[in-house]
Simulated assay, not measured.
Amino acid sequence: MDDRQLHAHLIGRQGSRAALNTPALVLDLDRLDRNIAAMQAKATAHGVALRPHAKTHKSSDIARRQLAAGAVGLCCAKIGEAEVLSDDGVTRLLITSPVAAPGAIERLALLAQRAPGLAAVVDDPAVAARIEHALAAADATLDVMIDIDPGIRRTGVASPAAAVALATAIAACPHLRYRGVQFYCGMQQHIEDYATRRAAIEERTSYLGQVIAALAAAGFPPTIVTGSGTGTHAIDLALGVFTELQAGSYVFMDRQYLDCDLDGSGGAPFETALMVDARVVSANHAALVTIDAGFKSLSTDGGAARVTTGAAPETAFAFMGDEHAALIAPDIGLRLRAGDPVTLTVPHCDPTVNLYDHYHVVRGDTLVDIWPVSARGRAR
Rank of each mutant, 00 (worst) to 15 (best):
D236S: 07
S249R: 02
T223C: 15
G209I: 10
V251P: 07
L245N: 14
L208H: 02
G248A: 06
L215R: 04
T205Q: 11
T226P: 10
D193W: 02
I212P: 01
T205G: 03
R197S: 06
S249M: 01
A195G: 07
T226W: 13
L208N: 03
V251Q: 11
T226V: 12
A217H: 11
A200Q: 05
V241D: 07
G240F: 11
A234H: 11
H233D: 14
R204Q: 14
A238L: 11
G227K: 00
Y194F: 15
Y194S: 08
L208Q: 05
I201Q: 03
S206F: 14
A218Y: 10
A214S: 11
F220W: 02
A247K: 06
A218N: 07
S249E: 06
L237R: 01
S228F: 09
R198H: 12
L237A: 06
T196D: 12
G240D: 03
E202W: 08
A247F: 05
A247G: 06
A199C: 09
L239N: 07
A234D: 14
L239S: 05
A200L: 10
A238C: 12
E192M: 12
G227T: 00
D236P: 06
V211C: 06
V241W: 05
P221E: 04
A216N: 14
I235V: 09
S249I: 02
T226Y: 15
T205R: 14
